[in-house]
Amino acid sequence: MGEEKLWLDMYISMVRIRKFEEKVVELFAQGKIPGFVHSYIGEEAVAVGACSALEPTDYITSTHRGHGHLIAKGGDLKYMMAELYGKKTGYCKGKGGSMHIADVDLGILGANGIVGAGLPIATGAALSSYLQRNGRVALCFFSDGASNRGTFHESLNMASIWKLPVVFLCENNMYGISMPQRKGMAVEDIADRAAAYGIPGVVVDGNDVIAVYEAVKEAVTRARAGGGPTLIEAKTARWRGHFEGDPQIYRTPEEIEDWKKKCPIMRFQEKLIKMGILDEAKIREIESMIAREVEEAVRFAEESPYPEPEEALEDVYA
């Protein structure tokens, strides 16, 4: 794949995440989506930069804020939206919802409602790849908050001693709900913690999709070659609350506005225009294409049936 095509695909993927999430926020406010919704708006460069550096057979583990990761790894908007609605046609037949969407065939080992739970699971997927000698890499998305959990320590330690093919990608959006990173840890860069495991630690601008891509690509190459794990910290911000409805008393509107000025999509768009890969017409074409995809996903979700209540009893055991 030529770089131009790759950059364009990455741009499209970022727009797809943004538009999907904007629609989800709107539908949630209308009461059409039950449960909790954690919006990924503002962090698109991390998911897309990272997943673009993976092969389709590679694995990811995701988080409660997982829609972006799933879309970037190839998740189908229709099945995602249907799952958010709790419909039978959703990825998990309505049993998982936003926080548990998975598609093992796409290498998506699940969003996860427990902060930091993906770390040992990704480590296990990497152990599995190593034992099967199948060359697959596991990439673990987790957050600044999760990096304070014991799972972080045990997983990075285990992966480093066994040189497992795993990339630990910390999306540092600077808050664990209301807890600012600076109050939750005494280090400024989470990547510094890599030193404790004898592995490379890299800080990257999480709003620069190419920077994320290049850092992850290097880590993936090292992992696949048997060089072991890397800890990458992508500094970014969520534009919306921790969950939809979060009053956000812990940060100022100015702080959010400052981050909006660093919009990862606008930055990438400007870059691609300068490179001659995008122009106004192409941008409009992409936006209307994505708008159609999202509308189609909503239509699919709304027209799909709910599961029969008794289906709650299925799928407990294999």
Partner: peptide
């Protein structure tokens, strides 16, 4: 190492991926 969380958590990840 002494890592019960990673022993079980990694087993979940490995079992989900064919081991």
């Amino acid at each position: 190492p002494i890592s019960e969380t990673a022993i079980i958590g990694s087993s979940v990840g490995a079992a989900a991926t064919g081991m």
